[in-house]
Amino acid sequence: MTDPRHEKEQQKHRLNEPEGDEIDVTRMHLGLTREHGEPHEGYEPMPLWLPTLIVGLLVWAGYYIGRYGGTFDANSYDPVTIEEGAGSGNGASQGSPMDRGKNVFVSTCVSCHQTNGEGVPDQYPPLAGSSVVTGDSKKLVQIILHGLNGPLVIGGKRYDGSMPAWAGTLDDAQVADVSTYIRKSWGNKGDEVTPDQVKAIRAATSGRGQPWTAAELGLPH
């Protein structure tokens, strides 16, 4: 394919491309003065598939707006949002205690105790393999409700931090579910905690305005 016009064009453009550092004055001016005229439009017709595509897209747009248009309203969210009832303040009431407990756990506990329940060395004690978690459920619920302050020994390691109180955030069912979840996860083998148990403990300790210490609960410290 040696179109002579094509060859010539190529040559022209090679002139635009300098080589190395040599400056040849004539060549330089060639590069500058030789260019094609200012561009203008040709009048080829559109390929037929383009209008076809456009019609197809417009039909699709009609469908999409019909399907997802919603109402022309400020509170018109994607359908499922409304079904889930943006109305309930504390949702997630379906599923088994373990599922619900996991939801509470990933929401409120992981930032310290981590997803794997291992805690953070020297900072936050592990829940996995912890006797405080799997032991007396009353002490565990008391800690979750009101928090824990000061030194505590878990698995032979000493921690000196403070856990916040959750009594104001979590209801009885949530405390029960999350207790059940951590007592039965990561190889832990504890029994379930029921909302009624939590309710009783909450009532019994309702006057308490500050976190526990390990000493108060008779835990190693």
Binding site: K12, H36, P39, Y43
Partner: peptide, 11 residues
């Protein structure tokens, strides 16, 4: 400009 032919289609 560089190719040296008009743009394909005004439409």
């Amino acid at each position: 400009k560089i190719v040296g032919r008009p743009i394909y289609s005004y439409y």
